[in-house]
Design a protein around this nucleic acid. Structure first.
Lengths: 157, 157
DNA sequence: AGCGGATACGTAATATTATAACGTTTTCGA
DNA sequence: TCGAAAACGTTATAATATTACGTATCCGCT
């Protein structure tokens, strides 16, 4: 279950995945949550790119190393990872991205490039504030937000 | 193809659907777009509630009056209606809602009550502004936004 | 160490959501 | 009224996600 370096990915990116996993291990330890080998592997696969990855892409990857893998295998792992803020679901893509600041509780806001597929998670407090303002007008209590901006990243314009 | 009054819906709501359809007819006329009987019927079905409705719910309703209805029937109609801003897709629900101000081009922002299912479309310009600010920081060009707040409406809290 | 409940996982089946492909019909301007 | 474009009918299938149920593993407790 060790992470093989991949010729198609930069050294930096492998390092970044490694860090993400280290953070996850740490976080789960603190919380008494069981980051099992499978869950860790799914996390690595999600972090394997800066794109959002589809559940069935993860499944295909996983099945290569573990022929018994089935949809629930992946969805269960994702559910766990999302519950711990290690991964977010991108509703507008039916796909999943690794979270690069899982430590703190936060609302996810994404910029998604429709050119290269890059997903950037941002934290723009004024978005949250504006939303809160809108919610107050309606007497609405916000529990969860989906904020996903599609367009073109700088490189793809 | 006439709209029957429904015992389960208020007079006001029927009136509201009627208005929505009138607006749609008007708008399509101006744009030279063909709001066919089927498309109009799907629009009515979407407007039939203030909830977001699933494509296959629409299909079931439609199939009751028109046994030949199939998924493409519904999805094509929805595609047309969305292209004209008469309906929005709610990504976080895989569902569709009627738009109550289709006349002007606008970005859709929703408050979705997880209690009663009510969907309120709002226009809070400060959300758009905050997003623009975030985008500028990244040099990102935003083409389309998904802003969906889940929580509880005033009545359901 | 060994029991027992809780958690995680294996596996098959199926539900839900959406699109592809291709032929026919309808619309509408030239 | 002809012909191209748009809309629609129909079948099939792709893509996404969950249910259900049995087994294995973990872990606190004695």
């Amino acid at each position: 279950m060790k992470i093989e370096p991949s010729a198609t990915r930069s050294h930096d990116h492998n390092a970044c995945v490694h860090d993400a996993v280290a953070t996850a291990v740490d976080l789960c330890e603190k919380r008494g949550a069981r980051l099992t080998a499978q869950r860790r592997r799914v996390l690595e696969l999600v972090w394997g790119s800066h794109r959002a990855v589809k559940a069935y892409e993860i499944l295909d990857d996983l099945a290569r190393e573990q022929p018994g893998a089935r949809p629930p295998t992946v969805y269960r792992a994702l559910e766990f990872l999302m519950a711990h803020g290690l991964v977010h679901r991108v509703d507008s893509l039916n796909a999943f991205v690794g979270c690069n600041h899982a430590r703190d509780r936060h609302e996810a806001q994404f910029f998604i490039c429709d050119g290269c597929g890059l997903v950037r998670e941002i934290d723009e407090p004024s978005i949250g504030q504006a939303v809160t303002r809108g919610a107050k007008k309606l007497g609405f209590r916000v529990d969860r937000q989906t904020v996903e901006m599609h367009g073109r990243c700088e490189a793809c314009q």
